[in-house]
């Protein structure tokens, strides 16, 4: 790749921050548990984007390996989370997150 410009770190940092804030906003306003899990995935992706940016900037491969492991853990987390959700839906017939304050006992 001849004459490629170095990446613009500021742009990526602001973009990742924006994505993280949008994910946090979603966690705050949505009541649907599946959408809540999706917002968490969005926040994870914001962190991934930041890590890839700095990995590229510092020319260091370790951060990209960490992103790979984050993706692995996210896959496992989504599997277990969704199966818990199905279990909860069978018991309560709803996926409204506010019903879950019953878990406090």
């Amino acid at each position: 790749m001849p004459q490629a410009t170095p990446i613009n770190v500021d742009f990526y940092v602001i973009l990742a921050t924006l994505l993280f804030v949008i994910g946090a906003f979603g966690v705050m306003i949505r009541r649907n548990m599946i959408v809540l899990l999706m917002c968490i995935e969005l926040m994870l992706n914001a962190v991934n984007l930041l890590m890839v940016t700095f990995s590229c900037y510092y020319n260091n491969a370790d951060a990209q390996i960490f992103v790979f492991f984050i993706i692995v853990v996210a896959a496992a987390e989504a599997t277990v989370g969704l199966s818990i959700l199905i279990l909860a839906y069978r018991q309560l017939r709803t996926i409204d997150i506010s019903i879950f304050n019953k878990l406090k006992g």
Partner: peptide, 25 residues
Amino acid sequence: QPGDNVALSNIGLVKNLGNTLFTKY
């Protein structure tokens, strides 16, 4: 950093990342 002003680095390619993944990690 030294890798700052050179062209985009090649560490993200499958070969280099695989080398790191299967040796160090």
